[in-house]
Design a protein around this nucleic acid. Structure first.
Lengths: 337, 337
DNA sequence: TAGCGCCAAGTTATCGTTATCAGACCTTCT
DNA sequence: AGAAGGTCTGATAACGATAACTTGGCGCTA
């Protein structure tokens, strides 16, 4: 590969100045229409490709918005990223992704790495961070948006909901349908802070109903897979066979749990009710369909995008948008009168 | 936000030259240990964050590897990205993602956009591209890797398999287990070129077995969801109730199809056999488990990473690595003697 | 003690674009 | 006809880092 083609080469070939070439590649700048056409043609013929590295440096604008998510392979976060990406893309902003792997120490490294690329805003999944992460973000001077949570001391903006509160609704629903011996299947570390919040919410909800929350099953380190959900359900059925309902930390583990029931001939919802979280497609397709909480993952991303766009236009004070979650009652928790 | 802190500020505060600060932030450069410590401390206190935009421009190295995938929300591609990302991350390279949305014209735009960020290598999902995409990539001068396919005229390196050939194996398996009236559920456009290749492979395999492949069900535009798989199965059961087996373009649609059977009281595999593609976790968890093809998604990413690393060290000629796929026979296609 | 080599740190120019200011040219109006 | 205003284009410097080269100091050898 010889030396790469730059604007200088295009300028020379087109017989204009570099500045004019630069303008020909921007929208809304004053270049005669034919000049722009000609320059673009020459550039294409030369095989010129714009270098945004240089442009970003000089203009001190990158057009990046960074987002941290626990892992790529999760439909909920993928939906949030999708919503964010689509809305921002329409406005010429590009999303750069980083994975925290459910670990706030890794998040710290990631945040620093992302800030090095000078994003114009940053979206975080979750509201719990290291002290240094908070410091880095605070002094970055860009809009910060925490999502999927309602942190008590937000760094900047918030688009989220209370994970604990969703469990309140779920427990009430199960009790209303006649179950009292309710179990919770979740991760056995607090790496997934949202999952941990849901477990806390479960415990609080049970206590406030006067039931001791003793049926807590640890299914492994987050993220909890279908397989781990199935294994956990196996243990639950063996060790506490009188359990009447089980709430799983996500629809994936809920589906795994339900499959285990089917394999063992345990009927859902007659023998045991099952509920998940996340409104994954599978929960609406499988037989029976699974009761879940819809956190409106995509809407979270879209709202975050709106917030960013308005914050970049004029920075008002921090905004907190609470996303309404829905309890979606399906066959897996129907009353069995 | 006041003016951002640069190396100059750190240099002044630490009483050294900018160059020394620069060196203090690199590994393996000659700076006295205490000097480096001191500089790092001063930098941290000032809240300095390294600006990789500038570094990339000056050094003409970005440390980026670009990858195009159809969409973020697909476990197979997510696995490939995961494998790639992990292997490259160990070597200081960072993955930047772009989505083609199953559209080679969008891929063209995307490729250009990604090239503007001067990646050091580029990984493509699929082997079919527009003429301009090929031209852009050829003149980029960086290693190109096409994956998830075995293109007849590769642009550069290849890490993939023949989608059509996998269907040959699947059809043979179903015929061996006593089925002849076999249907195929897939997308009704060719946007998903790999899905389209699988349909072509299905047609070829059926023909070579002397069976006319008439049972082709269009389930919508790719990607085919569980819901669309279920709907397609509904139509198939109504219109061609004598069908003995159905191959779905992915495990997700296969699961949807199977759920529809359960809803209608059609037994799997006794009344109809079902097969999918992709070795998604769900296919190994659901009841009954679903026969599938394992394309070793993660391995594709890992191999691509290896290829990139060796190509960046010393560019040999183009390499083609064929990934072995496995037919995974499960309950949904058991013989029903 | 001269001479060589090595290490740590400094100097200068530069990566490829764009901000900014200035100038040329063309209308339009008084 | 000349001033005023608009449109288009050009010259120059700069964004924040690093490559490449240079310098100064020290230790070692002959």
């Amino acid at each position: 590969m010889q030396r790469a083609i730059t604007m200088k080469d295009v300028a020379k070939a087109a017989g204009v100045s570099v500045m004019t070439v630069s303008r020909a590649f921007k929208a809304d700048t004053s270049v005669r229409h034919e000049t722009r056409q000609e320059i673009r043609k020459v550039a294409e013929d030369l095989g010129y490709v714009f270098d945004s590295t240089a442009a970003n440096l000089r203009s001190q604008k990158t057009g990046f918005v960074a987002i941290t998510i626990p892992l790529i392979n999760n439909a909920n976060f993928a939906d949030t990223v999708g919503g964010l990406s689509d809305r921002l893309g329409e406005n010429g902003l590009q999303v750069i992704l980083g994975y925290t792997n459910y670990n706030i120490k890794e998040e710290e490294r990631l945040v620093e790495q992302l800030l090095r690329r000078r994003p114009e805003a940053m979206v975080l999944t979750g509201g719990r961070h290291t002290e240094r992460t908070r410091r880095l973000l605070n002094s970055s001077g860009i809009p910060i948006i925490e999502t999927w949570d309602l942190p008590s001391e937000p760094i900047g903006h918030v688009v989220g909901f209370s994970n604990a509160a969703t469990m309140q609704a779920m427990v009430e629903h199960l009790i209303t349908t006649g179950r009292r011996r309710i179990a919770f299947i979740g991760g056995d570390t607090d790496g997934d802070t949202r999952g941990a919040d849901r477990r806390r919410g479960f415990i609080a909800a049970m206590s406030s109903q006067g039931i001791e929350p003793t049926r807590l099953i640890g299914a492994g380190t987050p993220p909890i897979s279908m397989r781990e959900g199935a294994d956990a359900m196996g243990r639950l059925l063996t060790e506490m066979p009188d359990t009447e309902a089980v709430i799983c930390v996500s629809d994936l583990s809920a589906f795994g749990a339900m499959s285990e029931c089917q394999r063992r001939g345990v009927r859902v919802p007659e023998d045991i009710a099952i509920a998940g979280f996340g409104a994954y497609e599978i929960a609406d397709i499988c037989v029976p369909t699974i009761t879940t909480i819809d956190p409106h993952s995509r809407r979270i991303g879209e709202q975050a995008a709106e917030l960013i766009l308005s914050a970049l236009k004029s920075d008002r004070g921090p905004v907190c948008i609470e996303i309404e979650t829905n309890l979606v009652v399906r066959q897996s928790s129907m009353p069995t009168l």
